[in-house]
Nucleic acid binder design. Structure first.
Lengths: 350, 350
DNA sequence: TGCAATATTGCAATCGATTGCAAAAGGGAT
DNA sequence: ATCCCTTTTGCAATCGATTGCAATATTGCA
């Protein structure tokens, strides 16, 4: 920017009124009172068609939009929802699982469609109670928590504070909050049956059963084994948290211990894809030697090699369901825990 | 839930006061005026240590937190930043590129660290002017736009409205808004030189040069060719938008036309990974037949096979830089376009 | 004990909108 | 022109906090 442009910019800056245009200004220019402006802009039938359009045009030409804060204050309500992504400050730092991240967008769309704003925050999983502040301070009407992890008790406490709360996760006994999640037992069962029916006999399970969703997927894994009369081999049930490295380690340890296995059911696509890489590194081929099934059906699942067979969860449906549940609760309606359908997507890896 | 539990829940619900606790309540219980409570809670030195702690404890025990809306209204300021992800309603629907999505989290953290809230929204790329509403309506103090795409003019118009605005993207001539982005020319040059220095002579370029960032990466591609005295082959410069399918199509068309090439520089990891898959499908091996370099260094780049050689952009640094720039502008300071350093990460694909 | 100086506290106006109620304007019939 | 009824409009209180200024309580010192 040369000197003359700079001074020009400064001139522009000083020319603009330092104070924002507000309802009062519109009223003065239109020659009516603020009451009329307020009513006109909120489509009240009390103001005549003629003045309404006149005021609307004036407002648009001045690029005016009502101060939402003041409006909320007066109306005693608001149209903002807090979306919380818990993260573990100690161990698994930030959540970067593409499935969770993708859900954000879907929730944002669902909220926009309903005319709500979305306040996003990551909060320390040990301080989930902080989420209540968004409601207590009137910033949001309710909270959506993405991911239940191992925080059932904390979530229950949150729910006791009577704030509209919906959690993406598994339905648990004695749960005081509403959950939306995929049908994990069914999903786990679908994945496992697919492997067993293809003749695999030694299906490893990769997941952290401390997490409710994983525990349910494991239940499906057990159920499939029972249904098909295949015994479960305890050595093949491996505790793997939702971190890529962990899947790699799990594969290595199986190989080092010379445990025999011919398939893996991993509780997320991230784990499955990393496991495939680790298998390749040790010279095992997928699916010939080892078949692999994942969970989530993230975009990458179809791009990687071999394309991943996985359990599909629809992010779009999930986002809509979470938002619908939250708004229902906020209205005072009852919202029951929701189990979204899952389906098996067969690709090359199994 | 059995009937008795249900009625118990209803009892609990009716017992809680329907009205939220507010400053007035604290004042009454503490036997002081709201002024004192207000001052106590905002650490004013005008209130004695003793009453301050008494009020603080009372507030905490009642789980009170000040109504941020009312506070903002009175103080005439606020601590919220709007983050906008443009999406193209027509062609490329929703942005799901993991790089952009990941940046969200990084921005959220940077904002939290500064005590700001983050209002997230996706808006139609043809209506970027709507972003101004977040400021006009007093909901946010400024706007961060993730991704410049082809909307330079619209962004300039936004900037003319004098709202604090920062955009993730490339610096362009006659730009009225502040950008933060990686050094695209350098990145493009690094990637291309790496391929050329490894003896590749026919490096295909995958990217949509309509987009400023891609255009700059292409400039780096040209510069590297010039520097090393390798001619650019026009047939190898392919317009590929940021969609996975497009990379697959691009590879197919090269093969169908029997164009000779021995390397690909793709302008995003998503394109690179998909291209690798497509190459494999047609029986070409990476990196033996074709070397591939991506851009972004998303998490998946190191998990896929072969692990992707790519240009690293730090999401963490980017988020912090965007937030810092925005807050600087908001304070009235000058914020110059920022070029973050990039570096080549050499893995197996090239 | 009395008085000035200082440390605390409360009153009341204010932020920018909304809304019940009363007043004014418009319209039609006599 | 008058009166009544309907349609529009404006006044003023209100939402939940903050803050300048005045009032009160406390303290120190003579």
């Amino acid at each position: 920017m040369n000197p003359s442009e700079a001074s020009n910019a400064k001139l522009l800056a000083t020319k603009t009124p330092p104070t924002k245009v507000q309802m009062d200004d519109i009223a003065r220019l239109a020659g009516v009172s603020v009451s009329t402006v307020s009513r006109a802009l909120s489509q009240s039938p009390l103001v005549s068609e003629k003045t309404r359009t006149r005021i609307a045009e004036l407002a648009k030409s001045l690029k005016y939009s009502v101060n939402v804060g003041a409006q909320n204050l007066r109306r005693g309500q608001n149209r903002t929802v807090a979306v919380v992504i818990p993260y573990d400050a100690k161990s698994r730092q930030h959540v970067s699982d593409p499935f969770f991240i993708g859900m954000l967008g879907s929730i944002a769309d669902a909220l926009t469609l309903q005319g709500y704003d979305m306040l996003l925050s990551r909060i320390d999983a040990d301080r989930l109670d902080l989420a209540a502040q968004y409601c207590d301070s009137g910033r949001a009407v309710g909270v959506i928590v993405i991911g239940q992890w191992g925080h059932h008790d904390q979530l229950n406490e949150l729910a006791l504070r009577h704030l509209p709360l919906v959690v993406w996760g598994a339905e648990l006994p004695k749960q005081l909050y509403c959950t939306v999640g995929s049908d994990n037992v069914e999903g786990g069962s679908l994945a496992t049956s697919h492997l067993l029916k293809a003749g695999r006999k030694r299906v490893a399970f990769f997941g952290d059963t401390q997490m409710p969703e994983v525990a349910q997927r494991f239940e499906g894994y057990e159920r499939a084994h029972r249904a098909l009369g295949v015994p479960i081999l305890p050595d093949l049930v491996i505790q793997v948290p939702f971190i890529a490295e962990a899947a790699r380690d799990a594969v290595k340890s199986l190989v080092v211990k010379q445990t025999r296995f011919d398939a893996i059911f991993a509780c997320s696509d991230l784990l499955a894809i990393t496991a495939i890489g680790a298998l390749r590194d040790v010279g095992l081929s997928v699916p010939t030697d080892i078949a692999v099934v994942g969970y989530d059906d993230v975009d990458m699942a179809s791009y990687c090699h071999p394309a991943l067979t996985t359990i599909h969860q629809s992010i779009e449906v999930a986002g809509r369901a979470l938002v619908e549940a939250l708004l229902a609760i906020q209205r005072g309606d009852e919202a029951l825990p929701n189990h979204l359908p899952t389906r098996l997507v067969v690709r090359a890896s199994a």
